[in-house]
């Protein structure tokens, strides 16, 4: 039996600020992980990543990150992705400062 596909979100960094962004279902780059499109199909994920890669005047380094459904939207699985949703732990900078967490 094929292994179940771990759902993904498309994530990247914004071109100007470098802030972490997520691709939503309606093709907007959101700064909030919970607003990301949770992609449960591998072929669809590749298409969405291609779409992200073409937006080189807006984002940098798009990739697919593992995620899971949560009560308020997709949640990160790996701790690295969890840190990316928040910002650093030594100061309330980044998304903590901007009110995106």
């Amino acid at each position: 039996m094929a292994r179940a596909y771990t759902p993904k979100v498309v994530t990247a960094n914004a071109l100007i600020e470098g802030d972490v962004v997520y691709l939503t279902a309606d093709d907007i780059w959101s700064r909030n992980h919970a607003e990301a499109e949770l992609i449960e199909d591998e072929a669809h994920a590749q298409l969405r990543l291609l779409k992200a890669d073409r937006q080189r005047d807006r984002v940098v380094g798009a990739y697919l990150a593992d995620a899971r459904p949560g009560p308020n939207g997709p949640e990160p699985i790996h701790f690295r992705e969890a840190f990316r949703t928040r910002g650093p732990s030594n100061y309330a900078h980044g998304k903590q400062e901007a009110g995106n967490v």
Partner: peptide, 27 residues
């Protein structure tokens, strides 16, 4: 780069030569 005339692949070595990295949350 900002105008889109340079791709990130083209720009990356140029910015690195000038000490500019892209890190987890920002440049």
């Amino acid at each position: 780069r900002i105008s889109g005339a340079l791709t990130e692949d083209e720009f990356r070595p140029l910015r690195l030569m000038n000490g500019l990295y892209l890190q987890l949350h920002a440049y």
